[in-house]
Nucleic acid binder design. Structure first.
Lengths: 200, 200
DNA sequence: GATGTTTGCCTAACATTGTTAAATAACTAA
DNA sequence: TTAGTTATTTAACAATGTTAGGCAAACATC
């Protein structure tokens, strides 16, 4: 009897519903609002039922992230196929990556560990501003012959900050993924590369 | 009577003890293990006492982050003063930033919202590997004349990823700090800059 | 010095979380 | 219909952030 398959299909449907409910909550209220009971409420079950499908909350999050990796890979693959020339392919792929990050920002946060929890203060306190001024001054000094606009200055500063913060983040989240020597190489190359772009 | 000042000093001491206890827990067990009761246990008080010094847990985290911003600014300032030439100052400042991030990685995570919570899977599942292969292939194609080593290839890939992920992270954590046009400018400049460095 | 008032801290509690064990309902197979 | 399996719920536990109310010591005022 095909009922086994029908039941299998229902189970799979439940699994999907759980994941969809989770994403719905996260998109509406953010990661900190996601709870097993809220998910259960949406799919009209009780919380323990979810544990038939996911061993715990973290496993559920992993499943969501896995979906995200698939989506991202697909978008980048599509982007690549829209071009023939490798340089254009590369640019298109990273632009697709960029678009994905903002179109599915909650997923992106989960996948790559971008601060979901802590402190609403950065914006008010300025956070980075402490060092951004200091750095910008030095950048201005280096570029003084070119009389850079405030916008250009800001862009250069953020280019530095992005690459360094990005590399740090990647290292902190996936501990020791890159070797120490690779890190130093990338870091120095990047700093010198951008510095050179300031001068000429 | 000087007792007022003595009391004031005791209060300040308590405040410091709370913050130190919090950092101790975080360094030993990570952010997810930090709880008001554990802090209280270390300083030998009960949890509600902490609320005399911080209105809630987030305020406590903000205070920790504020300490971090000061430390970071000081280290970058020191680094700057060790050099006279702006280019060297700039490099030294960013290296100081880098060192701070790893010497005080818990603080760095808090300050700049680097994934403290979610999913232990990246390492096992490979996470990024899905797209890293795809991108590396294209990079290899672009560099095919130079017969790049696997290490070089890897470094180039991570240079791309760092700057893009960094820029995304900064945007996601401090929402709308940069304008849309600035973002596009930085992004395209960075991609084209690195791409150029692949060819020559 | 006795009395009222403020201050510092604690006990007890509440609501919300993730998670588990046991009871029950629903369904399948004979 | 009955026995057995599966699906789902109820009830509970421990840990979390947080608040209200109480107690005792220190202070101020007479």
């Amino acid at each position: 009897m095909g009922s086994k398959e029908r039941i299998q299909r229902l189970k799979e449907e439940n699994r999907i519903n759980i994941l969809e409910a989770a994403m719905q909550i996260v998109k509406e209220e953010g990661w900190q609002a996601l709870s097993m009971r809220k998910i259960a409420e949406i799919i009209e079950y009780t919380a323990p039922m979810i544990y038939e499908y996911f061993t715990n909350k973290e496993a559920l999050l992993s499943a969501l992230a896995a979906q995200g990796y698939l989506q991202l890979a697909k978008k980048m693959c599509d982007a690549k196929e829209r071009h023939a020339e490798p340089t254009q392919q590369l640019e298109a792929m990273w632009l697709a990556y960029w678009d994905f990050a903002f179109a599915e920002k909650e997923l992106y946060q989960l996948m790559f560990g971008v601060g979901t929890q802590c402190c609403e203060q950065q914006k008010s306190f300025g956070g980075s501003n402490v060092h951004s001024k200091m750095v910008s001054e030095v950048i201005q000094e280096i570029m003084k012959d070119k009389q850079p606009s405030a916008d250009i200055l800001c862009q250069k500063y953020f280019t530095f900050w992005s690459v360094i913060h990005g590399l740090i983040s990647i290292n902190l989240v996936n501990e020791g993924l890159l070797g120490e020597s690779n890190n130093q190489q990338i870091l120095k190359d990047a700093i010198q590369g951008i510095t050179r772009s300031l001068k000429d």
